[in-house]
Design a protein around this nucleic acid. Structure first.
Lengths: 337, 337
DNA sequence: GCCGGTGATGTTAGCGATAACACCAGGTCG
DNA sequence: CGACCTGGTGTTATCGCTAACATCACCGGC
């Protein structure tokens, strides 16, 4: 019964393989000048001891970690959650660990504190999912030199940014309704300080302008089904409303329920389009036509941009946009009138 | 224009404060034997230099990191996503960083690989969200000595485990339907190899047994609205079905739509109860009665169990269960017959 | 007035890697 | 055939911290 001794270190491997620890290091880092036979001996020793390099020691001497910090809101909104999950997977495949710093609210202080925590950890780079303006503001405080990429952040700021092409998605959705024969399209929007919501408003308006359709007032909501329901109750009472584009699927769900309660049939009386394509959208009543963002693509672009900064210190094209696609289901029909 | 010099280290702070680096270390670690005046001088120097301790160096000498590794599936299922988010927040408050290792599928090899990646990082502890049996199997390979907590894992295994009391939630839901006057309750279940699903089946059956109600066959599905819809199509054709307990809210959504298509009104003709209380459940048609797990509580219990293991090496009570609550809305009514 | 204890601080020795340089054998070349 | 390169390897210094021990002033007690 012996005391658990410490984990094997490089010198233990070296001793077993009959070489110096430096040679072990060379094998580990794939340096060219190692004889094949030596390499094999070292690898065998590594395996035999179940040796794993000590990252702390490596980080200490190189000054670099293999860690990426992500700042995200503590919410289960479908978009951010999908993005985060996709990013973690992509980063993992690239050999980076991902440390997630959750933030309760997206205000300047919380974001700044989360970024600081990551800097304390000496992460190689930071990704901030900063979907609203106060979150974006916080990034002004981050000193240059820390590789940083913003996702869904402020398009008017100069930080490297990856985002879904909200305007295009909204344009397509609105256009689809107009093409179905509707005279105009109403819009239930997400919170005004969210860039996603703003971009969708912009795309919606552009589509209406393009066909000289009348632009009705934006119906403001947050992202919740509850607020969509309230917006829907209002719209359901207005007979001139025949088409509604909602800023996300949950808003659309609320609208759907309000319409159903008021006896306005979707899509016969009113057409509805959402945004996000949550997995259950196909099982709303009726199945929802919606816009699907490609979160995996956003994640990959983000990682690419970050890795570029980490290695070069600079970035060639610091703004990237990923186009979403319209998914047609049964919530859109020509107006009945 | 001078070259960016290296980050300040402890010796820089020491020099500025006119003390030795060891004294700086003592201040940082709140050692008692430091004169108040010295402490203040050191703190001032730390602030002036914007000094941050190098965690790699600390980890190297102490052999411990302040990192917790989490293994989770790459999915956006509401339950796991909520749990993860809650855990990250709780761990952050306790001063730990959380590294998330995503896994595409919950099979033994992937889980084992993810655990290994975390061990390479020398995390202080590991949390595995292991909701099905193949995931749980992988943990057999983890050597003792690595603090490990399983969430939603195998109740029959001896690893420390935290879980929602699935059986109680399901029992309450089923009981609620029986109390409303239904002769029996049908069940649309999640995948059979998920412990969550199994626990819910068990609770459902217990409630039926307790009132000597007939136990209809389990309708098997996965967690998706699509599979709920298929199950619902079948159940809708059976006039004797008046009450359905679904293993999660998305299944319930699919059932709701199938019922609506077949002209069976919920709750007038058929009552439905779900599980999870997703935020939009209140806006289904009709608003869904469901069971709400307390993910924050699960997260806290998990963290507590893990920290106990990290400090003591042992655990007093390695199994913890968190009771969910029934949320009553409008999808349950007495049978019409 | 000397001794031992105690509080405040400094000094030294690692932790486990990589970097930089030193070294040595063997081949190439003028 | 000696100078020079070059591939393979070892040696030493170093990263920034904490642990352990050393030091020193000051205190009270006999």
């Amino acid at each position: 019964m012996e005391k658990t001794s410490r984990d094997p270190a490089m010198t233990d491997v070296a001793r077993l393989a009959g070489v110096s620890h430096q040679t072990v290091s060379r094998v580990l880092n794939n340096h060219p000048n190692v004889r094949e036979q030596t390499r094999l001996r070292v690898k065998a020793a590594i395996k035999e001891l179940d040796y794993r390099p000590n990252r702390a020691a490596r980080a200490l001497v190189t000054g670099k970690t293999q860690l990426i910090g992500v700042v995200a809101q503590n919410s289960t909104l479908y978009g951010p959650a999908s993005l985060l999950s996709a990013f973690e997977e992509a980063a993992g495949e690239a050999g980076f660990a991902v440390s997630v710093g959750r933030v309760k609210v997206l205000d300047r202080d919380s974001i700044a504190a989360a970024v600081e925590r990551h800097r304390d950890q000496r992460v190689a780079g930071i990704v901030v999912i900063a979907p609203n303006s106060s979150a974006a503001d916080a990034l002004a405080d981050v000193p240059a030199g820390v590789p940083l990429v913003t996702v869904d952040g402020d398009p008017d700021r100069s930080t490297p940014l990856v985002t879904v092409d909200q305007a295009k998605g909204a344009f397509d959705a609105t256009k689809h309704l107009i093409d179905a024969g509707h005279e105009t399209v109403w819009h239930v929007s997400g919170p005004a300080d969210w860039f996603d919501a703003a971009g969708r408003v912009q795309g919606w308006r552009a589509a209406l302008d393009a066909t000289s359709a009348e632009v009705p007032p934006v119906v403001a909501a947050d992202w919740s089904a509850a607020s969509g329901y309230r917006a829907g109750q209002m719209l359901a009472r207005m007979p001139e409303v025949t088409a509604v584009f909602c800023s996300n699927d949950h808003l659309a769900l609320g609208v759907l329920r309000a319409m159903s309660e008021r006896g306005r049939s979707v899509p016969h009386d009113v057409s509805v389009v959402g945004f996000d394509d949550v997995p259950e959208a196909a099982y709303f009543i009726p199945p929802l036509t919606t816009v699907r963002p490609d979160f995996a693509a956003v994640a990959h672009e983000t990682l690419g941009l970050l890795l570029e900064q980490i290695s070069d210190g600079e970035t060639t094209r610091p703004r990237r946009t990923v186009a979403p696609t319209l998914v047609k289901r049964n919530s859109v029909a020509p107006p009945s009138r």
